[in-house]
Design a protein around this nucleic acid. Sequence first.
DNA 1: AACGGTGCCAACCGCCACCGG
DNA 2: ACCGGTGGCGGTTGGCACCGT
Length: 312
Amino acid sequence: MDMAHERDSSSSEEEVMAGDLRRGPWTVEEDILLVNYIAAHGEGRWNSLARSAGLKRTGKSCRLRWLNYLRPDLRRGSITPQEQLLILELHSRWGNRWSKIAQHLPGRTDNEIKNYWRTRVQKHAKQLKCDVNSQQFKDVMRYLWMPRLVERIQAAEAAQPAAGADDTPLSWQHDALYESPELPLDACWPAEYDLAADGQLPNTSSVPEQSGTTTMSSSPSTDSGTGAQPSWTAAVDGAEWFTTACDASSAAAMCDTNQLIQQQQEAPCQLGEAWTSEPLPVPAGFPDLGIADFEIGNFDVDSIWSMDDLWY
DNA sequence: AACGGTGCCAACCGCCACCGG
DNA sequence: ACCGGTGGCGGTTGGCACCGT
């Protein structure tokens, strides 16, 4: 056991044992304390922040709560098909580097992406009876799943052309979002988190409460994106960027796996660069996606890879 | 209506890297 | 160079909500 481990467990355990620290779900009052303190003093120095804010939480817990839930620029709601595609693409590139992947999905946390991967993607690997990290599964993702996602995105786009959509690739829109000046905080936070004009805590007695835990602990992400999703995220919902940000020739070139890996490891991320409206040509040497590879008998691609259960 | 199974997600845990004294 | 503090990351888990029977 290393020193860091000993420090972590001993220090936090002592404090918890002494009854000084709270654990478990955050209350609305705690959230407000944290939000107010960060609004006034900024992030960082989480341990001292926790003490100064009057929170009986570890610094780690405060940091996690802020980053994964309270941050004003968080994007709430379900993972969109575009985001799904991007996650698949980036995961094929970087593996379980969730924080790195999350950097390219503005408003999404590494935790959220990790949860998505575990619950959705790994489920399908399990159905296919292959390891999620196996080359077979990666190939199926690349040559079946991802092109189908693109098809779905484009079909949705065709059925519902975005009014006033511009030609800006989403990657640029993302960058613009990232670099946009202060997003209106109240566009993202639930009303009960609004800071009082005088900086005082709002009257939390009016906040509906569930078993002493914050009322929004599950609803924002389980309400299928309705209501809580701030209006500013609408700009990233278009599908057009996938087709405008890439071209068929580069996609074909990408099919050389070795070349792809080499390119991608060096190249900065260009969202959706490898995917086009054209079905990807199966590269030479790519194994027949036959049933035998996955040992699942009658391999019904359409049913196994139906996007319906992955969609929302 | 009750119950069990399943999925989802917030929160925690364990470990590591970095930094400043 | 060493050590302690801190932040960050990936993995894991507990509990709630939902759904089917």
